[in-house]
Design a protein around this nucleic acid. Sequence first.
DNA 1: TAAACTGCTTGCGATTTGCAACTGGTTGTA
DNA 2: TACAACCAGTTGCAAATCGCAAGCAGTTTA
Lengths: 165, 165
Amino acid sequence: MTDISRSGCPINLSLEVLGDKWSLLIIRDMMFGNRRHFRELLTKSEEGISSNILADRLKTLLDEGIITREDDPTHKQKGIYSLTEQGIELLPVLAQMAAWGYRYLPVSEELGIRARLLSEGGPKLWAEFMDELRENHLGLKRRKRAGPSVGERLQAAYESVVNRK
Amino acid sequence: MTDISRSGCPINLSLEVLGDKWSLLIIRDMMFGNRRHFRELLTKSEEGISSNILADRLKTLLDEGIITREDDPTHKQKGIYSLTEQGIELLPVLAQMAAWGYRYLPVSEELGIRARLLSEGGPKLWAEFMDELRENHLGLKRRKRAGPSVGERLQAAYESVVNRK
DNA sequence: TAAACTGCTTGCGATTTGCAACTGGTTGTA
DNA sequence: TACAACCAGTTGCAAATCGCAAGCAGTTTA
């Protein structure tokens, strides 16, 4: 690992950790796709990451404190990857990036619907989703709200678009 | 150029354009450091990009419509790079990334002050700064406000920290 | 007991990176 | 008019990284 940093600028330091074509996609799949195992991240992603790259990025994200890994009690070989608070707080970065991509790049309808809802919901919706992530990844208890969760709503919207086509 | 995209996901598409260690730093320098010429971007950055990488990234950013290039009337060899509206709207992405880095990475005091002010100012301050960028890069007229601009305030805060040390 | 599945690792060719030197031209100064 | 400094890049090359495919040892399922 190269521990020397080019500068102490927060944007630069962030890019030294996350500035590649895969790291944030892994975070995205953990957040929005609820992928928690190696195989899930490997095979259930749209983009088809290769296993060596995935292993390398997971190691980096572990080292940086963005995710954790624990053994799965139901399967001796499986590991469960979870987001840390530091990882969960990447949601606003992803949300802004999704909003920008939605506005300016050739986004497909079914994969754009989450970005649209997230953008329309704004920081308030992001905070609610982050609370859900804290519950699912950090095991924190949360006041039960009425109706479906943000994650469920995003997923339902996605499936609705897929089924309509 | 590889025009094939891995998926139509807005986050993925954004990363295919900006997912490397330099592109967003160039945008950052254009926004916050007001670097507009090749040499300025090359020599006045903290991180020391090399000229071939800079040339390559500028070409990509041009192709993607994130920046434009025009001849400098005062110097036959100089080109002036400007942000487009699409480029200016990357500010919230940078702001969120800066806020995250400021919170979790070993940011230096002088280079972190801008991130702190930007984070404290929130979306309202970002919008004001984006209006200033539109004035400087797109030539749009803007209602004159009282007092120093956001860019000036950020710069003053940075210099204040530098001088104090 | 065999097939499928688990989280990775390894080999290797192709691409990308980054340093350094260089190019062809322009501008400022004496 | 000469010359140094400055301009936006380009080129060559070694090193690092990427990404495909195959492989591996252990575990679970049928």
